[in-house]
């Protein structure tokens, strides 16, 4: 057994899990299970939302350590599902490491929804939430439109690897312009409802609940990281819509 390779593949599995939005404990548990199944005497893992540290002890007691940084994070539930499945299979019956590595690569390249569908998803979320918060069809339509705009901005910026603050700021600026523009064009337009529906696409919803969950279940560092992240995003939304609100008050 090549323990260097094992540590590498294990860390790869863990960082992919975190990259696609799995919980910290799931990533840690998957790695520990994998190492145990492949005959490591002992293993220590420590995962954060941004970084993973892994040490595997060979049967003689000699340690192999691997650190891997998690750079980008998105939500991809299909890939979490497949990674989980792969890990289960590898633990149940031995899969050669090189095949495991290839399977990981294949999952990483796995399919996502086509772009039009993703855009429709963003528009749908905004549309439905505008209705949900008590808006009429006008509010929902404008809100849905911002969903498409958000997607366009996201796709335009992606090649430049923008940081979360900057991209959220631009997207919320766009929401502000469209929704407040709508309130000038359409009589009786409920501006607030359209904006709230639209920002549901940007709001760090799950980060806000999961940071408390992390804190309460003892993952203090990850909880603090998620808290910081959700504050940054909320701040960017505030600034973006706020700038537009402020400008309309000036004129």
């Amino acid at each position: 057994m090549d323990y260097n390779e094992l540590a590498k593949v294990g860390a790869e599995l863990g960082s992919l899990l975190i990259q696609y939005g799995a919980e910290i404990y799931r990533a840690e548990e998957s790695m520990v299970r994998l190492f145990a199944a492949y005959g490591a005497q002992e293993s220590q893992v420590f995962a954060l939302t941004t970084c993973i540290n892994v040490t595997v002890f060979k049967p003689g007691g000699e340690p192999v350590t691997r650190i891997s940084r998690v750079q980008i994070r998105t939500f991809d539930l299909d890939k979490i599902d497949r990674l989980n499945d792969l890990c289960r299979r590898a633990c149940a019956q031995y899969i050669p490491l090189w095949r495991l590595e290839r399977a990981l690569k294949r999952i990483e390249m796995g399919k996502v929804f086509s772009r039009p569908l993703q855009a429709a998803g963003l528009a749908g979320v905004a549309f439905a939430f505008a209705l949900f918060f008590g808006g009429g069809l006008e509010e929902a339509a404008v809100s849905g439109l911002t969903g498409l705009a958000i997607f366009a901005i996201q796709e335009l910026l992606n090649p430049f690897r923008p940081n979360l603050f900057f991209s959220t700021l631009l997207q919320s600026l766009c929401i502000g312009v469209l929704c407040i523009g709508g309130s000038y064009l359409l009589p009786g337009f409920q501006r607030d409802i359209a904006i709230i529906g639209a920002v549901m696409n940007l709001v760090p919803g799950i980060a806000i609940t999961s940071f408390i969950r992390d804190l309460l279940s003892g993952d203090y560092l990850s909880g603090a990281l998620r808290f910081m992240e959700s504050m940054i995003v909320a701040g960017a939304i505030a600034l973006g819509v706020g700038i537009v609100l402020f400008l309309t008050q000036l004129f």
């Binding site: 539930l77 920002v199 909320a234 505030a238 819509v241 706020g242 609100l245």
Partner: peptide
């Protein structure tokens, strides 16, 4: 994870976050 992440979305206090920052700006 998947079920929780998606199903929790309507519960997330989006309006609260928006109004909080609106008051901050005002």
């Amino acid at each position: 994870t998947g079920f929780l992440l998606v199903s929790m979305l309507p519960m997330v206090p989006g309006g609260g976050i928006y109004h909080t920052m609106e008051y901050a700006v005002l």
